[in-house]
């Protein structure tokens, strides 16, 4: 791709692009500006796109992390836990299944792979209500497992790994490994897995993001606010603030700052892992 002739600067296109960038960034700018304000500064109106005179990030941050015994910090930890556990678990299962589907010809393969493809089209939220009913009978609702277990299911990850393993791992290499006396498991771990790395990172990121963003499932499953992920937690605060029963604390400032803080981990993750996930998307089954 690098030998492509470098196209000229195209000014109108870049101006157009500039407008789009502004559009995509305005909400972030608003949040950054307004999380520096206290309640009167926020509600008093005035300059909505610029800082108030008294910038109070530290005060607001301190309040955010100490309000209600540091509940917000717990929510961030919970989200992290759900994202990592759900992401790693789902990826592990998807990698194994994708490899299995791609490289072994076993009875029931076609049928089960067709089922997986069908599952791609089942809306995940349609599963929440019956899963809730099942979990409540098993006593699993309102535990961390109620959030982690359902996020292990990632049919798209299986599909992506299948396509990737099929195309990126030549059978000859596997056979060579087997001929050298490596067992199936060792062949998988030491030969196949390294070759699937870009796709693994992509699936890991996609499923971690899906868990991090999850709202409907934990909203239905959890009632203990100390188990909430940050999405449900901020939703709870919004409800309380709307009814305005937060006493002397005005929750609105905390909600805005909380929204800002909560996006930082994922933004960092995306920027630092950029090379990996972009590679996975471009090489993986999406072409």
């Amino acid at each position: 791709m690098s030998n492509r002739p470098r196209p000229q600067r195209n000014l109108p296109l870049q101006v157009f692009l500039g407008f789009l960038v502004v559009y995509f960034l305005v909400p972030f700018w608003w949040v950054i500006v307004n999380s520096s304000k206290d309640a009167p500064g926020l509600f008093g109106g005035g300059n909505t796109l610029w800082f108030a005179d008294n910038i109070d990030y530290l005060g607001n941050l301190q309040q955010l992390f100490t309000y209600d015994n540091g509940l917000y910090g717990r929510w961030i930890l919970n989200s992290t836990l759900y994202a990592i556990a759900g992401g790693v678990g789902a990826t592990l299962l998807a990698v194994m299944a994708g490899y299995g589907f791609a490289k072994y010809r076993f009875a029931g393969r076609r049928f089960s792979f067709a089922l997986v493809l069908g599952a791609l089209m089942v809306p995940a939220t349609a599963l929440v209500i019956p899963t809730f009913m099942m979990f409540s009978q098993l006593g699993l609702t309102n535990t961390i497992w109620a959030v982690i277990l359902p996020s292990l299911l990632n049919p798209f990850g299986v599909y992506l790994m299948h396509v990737y393993a099929r195309d990126a791992i030549p059978n000859e290499i596997l056979d060579a490994a087997r001929a050298d006396g490596a067992g199936e498991v060792r062949t998988f771990l030491q030969v196949a897995l390294p070759l699937m790395r870009p796709a693994v990172v992509t699936v890991l990121l996609l499923s971690a993001v899906a868990s991090w963003n999850n709202y409907f499932l934990p909203l239905a499953m959890l009632s203990d606010n100390r188990l909430f992920p940050v999405t449900v937690g901020l939703g709870l605060w919004q409800g309380i603030a709307s009814g305005n029963n937060a006493g002397t604390t005005s929750l609105w400032s905390l909600i805005i700052l909380g929204a800002l803080v909560s996006v930082i981990p994922l933004v960092i993750a995306f920027f630092t892992l950029q090379r990996h996930w972009r590679g996975g998307l471009s090489v993986g089954g999406l072409r």
């Binding site: 072994y104 076993f106 089922l115 299986v158």
Partner: peptide
């Protein structure tokens, strides 16, 4: 057959 199901099995159970 066995190896195939071994690899697909864990996902199958979750599925």
């Amino acid at each position: 057959h066995l190896m195939g199901w071994l690899f697909v099995g864990p996902f199958g159970i979750v599925f």
